[in-house]
Design a binder for these strands. Structure first.
Length: 233
DNA sequence: AAAGACCGCAACCGCGTCATT
DNA sequence: AAATGACGCGGTTGCGGTCTT
């Protein structure tokens, strides 16, 4: 038993959007706001699937989009975030204002991937390619004897890498525990960390937790509490 | 100048997740 | 608790533009 289709395929346009369709969509979103994508096409007089409207708006028509080339800073940030998060494009996009997940995904696949490969870096693991496979067999054992006795050639290769790409062995083991009541020196409750907000999805989040003062990726420097509603989906 | 190869981007598709009934 | 609906995400595709021969 499969899913029912998101819209009637028969009477919907596909392919490139026309200027008129764009104008209709923009006018409707300006008047009524985002959301209710399923009913939007009919309300806006568009012969499009709701999903298609949403995608067009998010990736192309939104007024806050930044068009044009990626800067070196954006490049570096994408690489760093990807090394931590993997293909979580929407989360990565959340940390780059004005960029969409689709745009970053495309940019990664067309530019950054190639750039990393040319430098001998595996884009998936962010490790040098030549010994990545063998090392993977003994991965998660960074304290083992094997990993500490990598060959001098490998060490040399590591040393030749630009600073940016010498990715340390990251321990991303996450622990989730009930938040403790945290009090600041002045007796006020310490802010909790909202993962959704912190990773850039604050738009959908209703937690009202701001992360403006937090450090890298918005992680607080002290204990981390989780708010139930804000766990990433 | 023409044809084929390659590249980049917009759009589509299928699935997972969450909310609602 | 199960079924259903809607949204959002990531992978993939297809097309138009550019480059190479």
């Amino acid at each position: 038993m499969g899913r029912s289709p998101c819209c009637e395929k028969v009477h919907t346009n596909k392919g490139a959007w026309t200027k008129e369709e764009d104008e209709r969509l923009v006018a409707h979103v300006r008047a009524h706001g985002e959301g209710c994508w399923r009913s939007l096409p009919k309300a806006a007089g568009l012969l499009r699937c709701g999903k298609s409207c949403r995608l067009r708006w998010i990736n192309y028509l939104r007024p806050d989009l930044k068009r044009g080339n990626f800067t070196q800073e954006e490049d570096d940030l994408i690489i760093n975030l990807h090394s931590l998060l993997g293909n979580k494009w929407s989360i990565i996009a959340g940390r780059l204002s004005g960029r969409t997940d689709n745009e970053i995904k495309n940019y990664w696949n067309t530019h950054i991937r190639r750039k990393l490969l040319a430098r001998g870096i595996d884009p998936a693991t962010h490790r040098p390619i030549s010994f990545g496979k063998d090392e993977d067999k003994s991965s998660n054992s960074s304290c083992s004897d094997e990993s500490s006795s990598s060959s001098s050639a490998q060490q040399q290769q590591q040393q030749q890498l630009p600073q940016l790409f010498r990715v340390p062995d990251l321990n991303l083991e996450l622990r989730i525990s009930p938040p403790e009541p945290l009090a600041d020196d002045d007796g006020q409750m310490e802010r909790l960390l909202c993962f959704r907000c912190s990773l850039g999805s604050s738009k959908e989040c209703k937690c009202n937790i701001s992360n403006s003062k937090d450090g890298f990726l918005g992680f607080a420097t002290r204990s981390v509490g989780l708010k139930k509603n804000c766990l990433m989906s």
